[in-house]
Design a protein around this nucleic acid. Structure first.
Lengths: 345, 345
DNA sequence: CTGTTAGCGCATTCAA
DNA sequence: TTGAATGCGCTAACAG
């Protein structure tokens, strides 16, 4: 920068101003400075700027345990992608703070915040609370937004899908087709999505005047399970039943896909013997046999919305963002659902 | 830090030493300093450290155009995940530098390097050259490693799968089953993987003494296409043919899955009428109808290896890394491939 | 509108 | 082994 100043025949502070506040400097000198900077291939030192300003232009994405890739689900990567793109368009960079294997390096997540490296954080579908040791992310004093998981109760603005309502409506659709008995394939116990989606199923049963016993719940252990594996195990349990429900509802597409594949391999027809409903809307569902009926999460919108909210927070917008923003999931009716065979009886 | 020094009754320089070079300071004073730091909840300011040292502990991942999520492929997210985990275990953070939508913010990718924000870069399967405008990443003087794509010709250490050999062997397997005519579903024209994989197919034909005309090549336009879409289009083209090859080989699993689903919907049997071979080894392939035979990329190993190489480079290891490291893909033979029907004739 | 000055928090010289 | 002093590159007061 000193070199640029020298070449342009001005002081370094003028260079700084010319680059940052185009308005506060004479147009001709500004041109001269820009030319000099161009000629010298000058690139501002971000570290120095961060130190001086006391803030960086990096935002941290805190991912959930199963992390970036998991089963068939591309939900997290899809959200991540829009978040990155949205931030990037505003000149922010995205730092991935996956939970590491060693607990020792875990601490560094909140440290990044108080250490001045990151300016804000976006929690993506993490099941764990955003606090580590005695230090909490929230306590670091940086803006935080959550997406895919509702943390509004903790005071964190959250952007989520209407999982509960969407699931309720989808199950009501199945009930409308004539189904009266359900097999539910649970996600990880205690997870937000699991609670919401099973809740939606329960809501639908209640709304239709069915007993809670109309649903058999399978899985939902505390240990994390790959989506496909849980689908396979669920299929085995389903096939072993004396009386098989006519519809299976999965918490994830991955489980639904593996369930479908497994029961068909054992001779059960889908949707003839059992209708299957997934959740997430992964693209590959359209190419399953039969194509999977599912609820598509608006991943791009979720990511964009969350990023925008964080950007607003970073801009110090006066208006506090709503604590909970809900975007609709969309029901994609495909071949894996139909009326039960004996519905016509 | 001044507060810590004061509380411990030492100079700030001693605090700095105590925290960085545990050996170069008296054990008792070190304890005192650590206690003080603990008590005050001191976290070093990373920006200041970066400025002073002239290097950060952030590594940048440059992703390819289709970016993080794409079709059925979780290759990039899987690699990204291991890369992030490996770096994290060594105290490095990962910054995502996806290509942004506006060309204006594109420049900032190499700028991150020369601006002192990032200390190294890892190119993940990007089709574009790692240079933007007149500035190139390579010219920024930071260590760079490429994974999923061979850039050794550009002097960049690369970690890749043995796509060509793996494809050759897989096709030889098909030839061994009796196939003599092939339908190839191409990936994006000019892409590294497309070239390697089609090359492997050609190698196999040559090795088996078959003519180049034993393969019909479909697709491979320059415009980027979603993997599923290209599979659907390929299926239409395949079905429209007078004489249909007995085996279809896809550059990606996504295309293979969509191809399989589409031809089956039109009455063609898999593998009865046509065997299908994919590439990537996405987990969902096991649950397709029929389960997809494919070549699995060693994503975790690729990511870990690339990250380790970058770490070695950052540590200033004397030994230059090999320019090209090749890890084996693994053939997963499943239900989508079998001998052609008339092979028995 | 522009130049001078000071200091962000840290690591590292050089003395002691 | 420790303290004092210096400067990394930049921005923001304050003067001019």
């Amino acid at each position: 920068m000193r070199d640029v100043a020298r070449l342009a025949g001005v002081a370094t502070s003028t260079v700084s101003r010319a680059l940052a506040n185009p308005g506060r400097v004479n147009e001709t000198t500004r041109r001269r400075i820009l030319a000099a900077a161009e000629q010298l291939g000058y690139v501002p030192n971000a570290a120095a700027r961060n130190l001086r300003v006391g803030a960086s232009n990096i935002v941290m994405a805190v991912l959930s345990e199963p992390a970036i890739a998991n089963g068939a689900s591309q939900i997290v990567p899809e959200v991540l992608q829009t978040v990155a793109a949205t931030l990037s368009d505003s000149g922010f960079n995205l730092l991935i703070a996956g939970r590491s294997r060693s607990a020792a390096t875990e601490t560094h997540i909140p440290d990044l915040a108080v250490g001045g490296i990151v300016r804000g954080a976006i929690l993506i579908g993490a099941a764990e609370p955003p606090s580590f040791g005695r230090r909490s992310l929230a306590g670091a004093g940086i803006p935080v937004v959550s997406v895919l998981q509702d943390r509004s109760a903790a005071g964190i603005p959250s952007v989520v899908g209407n999982d509960r309502e969407a699931m309720r409506d989808a199950v009501l659709h199945l009930i409308g087709l004539g189904h009266r008995s359900f097999f539910y394939i649970a996600g990880p116990a205690g997870s937000y999505h699991e609670a919401e989606r099973f809740g939606g199923l329960a809501d639908a049963l209640a709304a239709a005047g069915l007993s809670e016993r109309a649903v058999v719940r399978h899985g939902g252990g505390h240990s994390f399970q790959d989506g496909f594996q849980s689908g396979i195990r669920a299929a085995r349990a389903y096939l072993a039943r004396e009386r098989r429900p006519t519809a299976a509802v999965a918490c994830w597409d991955g489980a639904a896909i593996a369930f479908m594949s497994t029961v068909r391999a054992q001779g059960a027809a889908v949707p003839g013997d059992v209708s299957v409903l997934g959740f997430d809307g992964v693209p590959v569902g359209a190419f399953c046999e039969p194509p999977l009926t599912t609820l598509r999460q608006p991943t791009a919108e979720l990511g964009a919305k969350a990023a925008e909210m964080l950007l607003a927070l970073l801009d110090g917008d006066a208006a506090a963002p709503p604590l909970k923003t809900t975007l609709p999931n969309r029901l994609l009716v495909r071949g894996s659902t139909a009326g039960p065979r004996n519905a016509r009886a």
